[in-house]
């Protein structure tokens, strides 16, 4: 009946109202200042520098020289011939981008195939058990990504437990080379980001009214039809959210391709790091970083729109 109570509630009398409003405003921004300044200066502002760098020329020992150039962007599509200085279409970097997007997509689909039944299973458990399952699913996420990736490397390498066991039981006589393949990177990506898929899926499946499922059975639907016609449509917002939450970090992955791809199977993340490291082409690295960010922002926009439409809130 009373409107939303407000701790900053103010007397409605004109002057007093204005004064206390101004006081509340000042207090608010004072409280926000440390966080906003820190992130603004050292989180947002660097992106502006990156944007500027992408239009400059590389310095000899890293860094940049202040000379305007669009080379960083043309370099993506064309290769400059060293002898006659002509531009020839080149797919080297496009390939890396394509590979990254492809790998991230396939890993997303893989995570969905594993994550959906898992999330459904958790949602159909009694509430006390759900928390334990959710805890088990999220726990790896809070542990070191490097170490988890290293653990995967340990078991799939030639001398790893899988190959050794397979050889011991005589199924194979030479190690089955899994490490440093696209398959290894794919698996590493699923492994790293699976919790991001399960959580939003669970969030939307948990809201599913199981009476709808019963109603569908009552109307002669088979289990598969119930899954396809009732459960999956209900989980749609979760599916979209989960896919984007896996796709984004998968696309920008650095550690996974570095360790499991062996530095040969590059993804965008490695390409960017390489430009700021041994390749010493900061402008090109900056341009690649910006392109990656544009793709990610586009994906996030879809996510936000979808979340807004479905009325789903994610913390």
């Amino acid at each position: 009946m009373a409107a939303q109570p407000d701790i900053a509630a103010a007397p409605a009398d004109g002057l007093a109202q204005a004064q206390s409003d101004a006081r509340a405003r000042r207090r608010r921004w004072l409280l926000l200042a440390p966080a906003l300044l820190t992130i603004g200066l050292f989180g947002l502002f660097p992106l502006v520098i990156t944007l500027i760098y992408s239009f400059l020329s590389p310095g000899t020992y890293g860094g940049v020289t202040w000379e305007f150039s669009t080379n960083a962007y043309t370099q993506f599509l064309f290769e400059r011939d060293i002898f006659d200085d002509t531009l020839a279409f080149s797919t080297t970097y496009l390939n890396i981008f394509g590979r990254s997007i492809g790998l991230a997509l396939v890993a997303t689909i893989g995570a969905l195939i594993i994550g959906f039944p898992t999330a459904y299973f958790i949602a159909s458990k009694p509430p006390e058990q759900r928390n334990i399952w959710l805890f088990l699913i999220t726990l790896p996420f809070w542990t070191n990504l490097l170490i988890r990736t290293y653990a995967v490397l340990l078991i799939i390498r030639d001398e790893g437990i899988i190959n050794v066991s397979l050889m011991q039981i005589g199924l194979i006589d030479r190690p089955f080379g899994m490490l440093y393949t696209d398959g290894a990177v794919f698996m590493g990506l699923i492994y790293s980001y699976l919790p991001f898929m399960v959580l939003p899926l669970y969030a939307s499946l948990e809201k599913l009214d199981f009476r709808l499922v019963e109603a569908a059975y009552d109307l002669y639907a088979t289990r598969f039809q119930v899954l396809r016609r009732i459960i999956i449509p209900a989980a749609r917002p979760g599916i979209i959210a989960g896919c984007i939450l896996v796709f984004i970090p998968g696309l920008g992955a650095y550690i996974t391709p570095e360790l499991l791809g062996g530095g040969k199977k590059l993804m965008i993340g490695n390409l960017i790091a390489l430009q700021f490291g041994s390749s010493r082409n900061w402008p090109f690295g900056s341009a690649a970083a910006l392109i990656l960010m544009v793709v990610v922002m586009a994906a996030l926009l879809i996510y936000v729109r979808n979340a807004g439409k479905a009325g789903v809130r994610h913390g």
């Binding site: 009373a2 109570p5 509630a9 103010a10 007397p11 409605a12």
Partner: peptide, 8 residues
């Protein structure tokens, strides 16, 4: 709430 002072 007006008597209590939570609203003016």
């Amino acid at each position: 709430r007006l008597i209590a002072g939570f609203e003016l």
